[in-house]
Amino acid sequence: MEKNEVLQQERTKLYEIFADVDPSKSRLVEGLIEDAAFLRAENHVLRQQLAKTGMVKIHPTNPDLQKPVETGKQYLKNINSYSVIIKTLNGILAKNVIEDDDDLSEFE
């Protein structure tokens, strides 16, 4: 799958998840959704490269000499950023569900 396909799939998925959220909250998280989709697509490319190289270079004659691959470092940074964004988006979804439940409790 190409980077642009991954980007579009992630963007579509996240916007579908937020389709039922209050419009003002949806507008508020647009940037986070775009950033999450971008990071997901970037990591797709990095992961393909890491499948070839691995995350650590090991010296061929002295296995004790090891060096982290820059691609691996960036992948981990992106994963951490993506995780924070998804956690934030999930928190907004959770608040939306609680607010919807509160509206229903008035009718009980």
Rank of each mutant, 00 (worst) to 15 (best):
P68G: 02
P23T: 09
M55Q: 00
E2S: 12
K67Y: 14
E99F: 07
S105F: 10
N43T: 02
I33A: 11
V6A: 01
R11P: 02
E5T: 11
I79T: 02
L7Y: 10
T53R: 10
Q66P: 01
V6E: 05
K57G: 00
R27K: 13
M1K: 01
T61Q: 15
S81W: 10
P60I: 10
L76Y: 03
Q74P: 00
S26L: 12
S105D: 12
D35M: 12
V84G: 09
V56N: 08
N90L: 13
P60T: 11
N78W: 09
I58E: 07
K25G: 07
V45P: 05
D20W: 06
T12F: 13
V84I: 13
L50K: 01
E70V: 00
P68A: 13
G54H: 06
S81A: 15
V84D: 12
K25R: 15
A94I: 04
Q66G: 03
E2A: 10
E70Y: 04
Q48G: 15
Q9C: 07
L32V: 01
T53Y: 10
T53A: 06
P63W: 14
E106M: 14
V97Q: 10
E5G: 05
L46Q: 09
T88P: 04
E16C: 02
Q9M: 05
D100A: 15
F18P: 06
Y82Q: 11
R40Y: 08
V97M: 11
N90F: 08
E108I: 07
Q8F: 06
I79Q: 08
K77I: 09
F107C: 05
N78R: 02
S26N: 11
K95H: 08
E70I: 00
R11L: 13
G31R: 13
T71D: 01
E5W: 02
I58S: 09
N90K: 12
K77M: 08
A41R: 06
K67E: 07
L28M: 15
S105C: 06
L14M: 00
S83W: 03
L7N: 04
S24L: 14
L28C: 11
S83Y: 04
L50W: 09
R40P: 00
D101F: 15
D102R: 13
I33V: 15
L39P: 04
E99S: 13
T53M: 07
E30F: 12
I92F: 08
G72A: 14
E30I: 06
I79L: 09
T71A: 11
Q48C: 09
I85Q: 02
Q74A: 09
H59N: 11
T61I: 13
Y82M: 08
D35R: 14
I86F: 00
L89N: 01
N4I: 04
F18S: 05
M55E: 10
R11M: 05
T61E: 12
G72W: 02
R27Q: 12
V97W: 05
L65P: 00
V6S: 01
A19K: 15
D103N: 09
E108L: 11
Y15R: 11
V56D: 04
S105V: 03
G31S: 11
I17F: 04
T88I: 07
D102C: 05
G72L: 07
R11T: 03
P23D: 10
A36N: 03
I17G: 02
K3T: 00
F38Y: 15
A37Q: 06
I98Q: 04
N4T: 07
V56G: 03
E108C: 06
L46M: 09
D101G: 07
G72E: 02
